[in-house]
Simulated scan of single mutants.
Amino acid sequence: MADVSLPTPAVVPAPAAVPLRQILPWAVFGALLAAVLLYFVGVEQGVLSVFAGETVHEFVHDGRHLLGFPCH
């Protein structure tokens, strides 16, 4: 029987961990952006509206239905 030698796998170092100080500003920015988008899609109408009229409501109307927000 012939000896079959398998190649040894190359050792790949694990990527360095990203410090929390670099991730935190982007996480806060993403959460703030998500909250603003959620406000405009889900709440922007009636008493709490920032902009007068139905312009924003009509602009995000299909997104409201897609996300399950009732609007009429």
Score class of each variant (00 low, 15 high):
E44V: 03
L37A: 13
P19M: 01
V36L: 15
V11P: 02
H61C: 02
M1Q: 00
L6E: 02
V18Q: 08
S49T: 08
F59K: 13
Y39E: 08
M1F: 03
G68Y: 05
G63H: 06
V36I: 15
P70I: 03
V43Y: 15
P9R: 05
R64C: 05
G63K: 08
A17Y: 09
L48W: 07
V50F: 12
V11E: 08
L32R: 12
L67C: 11
G53V: 04
P7M: 01
H61S: 10
L32M: 15
A27Q: 15
V36N: 06
C71D: 10
G42K: 07
Q45T: 03
A17C: 01
L33R: 10
V60G: 03
P19T: 01
V56T: 09
A27M: 15
L38H: 15
V47C: 04
Q45F: 10
H57K: 09
V4C: 00
G30E: 13
G46I: 03
A16T: 06
P13A: 04
E58G: 01
P15S: 00
A14K: 11
P15H: 05
V18E: 06
G63I: 02
V12N: 01
F59M: 10
V50T: 10
G42L: 10
A17L: 08
V60H: 00
L24P: 07
D62K: 02
A31K: 08
G30T: 13
A27R: 09
A14V: 12
R64V: 11
P70G: 08
F29K: 15
A14E: 07
L38S: 15
H61K: 11
H72E: 04
Y39K: 02
Q22A: 08
L20V: 07
P7H: 01
V18W: 04
S5L: 03
P15I: 00
V36E: 14
C71N: 13
Y39T: 07
Q22K: 06
V60F: 15
V12C: 04
H72T: 01
H61V: 01
P7R: 00
V43K: 11
A27P: 12
E58K: 06
P70S: 08
V41P: 02
H57C: 12
L37Y: 15
V12A: 05
W26N: 10
A2P: 14
G68E: 04
V11D: 00
Y39H: 09
Q45W: 07
T8Y: 07
S5D: 07
L20I: 11
F29V: 12
V28C: 14
V28H: 09
L67S: 09
A31F: 15
F29Y: 13
A17D: 12
Q22C: 01
L38Q: 11
C71G: 00
M1L: 11
T8D: 08
A16R: 11
V12S: 02
A17G: 06
Q45Y: 13
V12T: 14
V11S: 01
G42R: 03
P19V: 04
P70H: 10
L6N: 02
Q22S: 04
L37E: 14
E44P: 02
V4Y: 06
A31M: 14
A31G: 11
